[in-house]
Amino acid sequence: MDIERIIRRRRRNDVLFALTGATITAAVLLVLGALAFTLVREGVSRLDLDFLRSYPSRRAERAGLLPAWVGSLLVMLVTGLTGIPLGIAAGVYLEEYTRKGWFASIIELNITNLAGVPSIVYGLMALGLFVYRFHLGPSVIAAGLTLALLVLPIVIVATRETLKSIPQNMREAAYALGATRWQVVRHHLLPYSAGGISTGVIIAMSRAIGETAPLIAIGAVAFVAFLPPVPYSADAFAVAREWAGSEQLSVVEAAVYPGVAWLGTSFTVVPIQMFNWISRPGDDFRANVAAAGIVLIVATIGLNAVAILIRHRMRRRIKW
């Protein structure tokens, strides 16, 4: 009968499609593998302690990544200290304090849209606002705040999704015992959602580390041959005197300015250093590019792996 032929044909189609799907998936993963392989092959010979300890140089074999990775860490510090609390607070408000209505849905649409705004547009906004209007210049703090705004939607969405997954009766039980709304958030919801929120936060930070375009837009320089001043060092006091505009600092100025001097210095970060090297004519700097790429990719993929691990463990442990 015909039916056997139909069944055979379907089996064949199924196998063909499954093969196609598996092949394409494998091909995409293979690209990731090829990328990692290229970076290692080209860059691993360049990647040593000297590379991490040296300032940039016109000579490729002497040029290093020191100001770049220090800059990346400092910018991340600012981003983390501002973007994370802001994002979590906004997420808590939107999930726990608002009723559904036009206000909530406008903010919701706004956040969805913000998540899709190209990062370079954030850079332009920061250039007009932070750099020129607030006179922060192309500094560590301007960069940190730019990236904080950029990752804000990621943190907000992660916070809300996690809070949403906590069953309503946990809240009701706490209210029944007389807790106020903030006490419910503080003592119950935030501790329960710590894992989910930290996953979102880590992914947000890994995104921020790799961002290049917005920092180029605010005018980050690629050739930085110094480190930001250590708080309360002689250099920091020099910056403080410059800010105060006089040799004699008042008590407040002496207490505050040298501590935050590093926020006001110009900076570079790893991806910008990489872009600078890659844009040079000739092949001299290719090994440096690859070595910087390894540093960058280890940082971002490492952070993502941690996030995946946390998510995995949370899923196993918590069963509502």
């Binding site: 690209v31 790799g210 790429g293």
Partner: peptide, 23 residues
């Protein structure tokens, strides 16, 4: 497969640019 695929979107785009140009 899903988390590994998601790692691709975690790769900084400047690294992808390098890959496009040199490979």
């Amino acid at each position: 497969v899903k988390p590994v695929l998601e790692l691709i979107s975690a790769v900084p785009t400047v690294v992808f640019g390098y890959f496009a140009l040199t490979v």
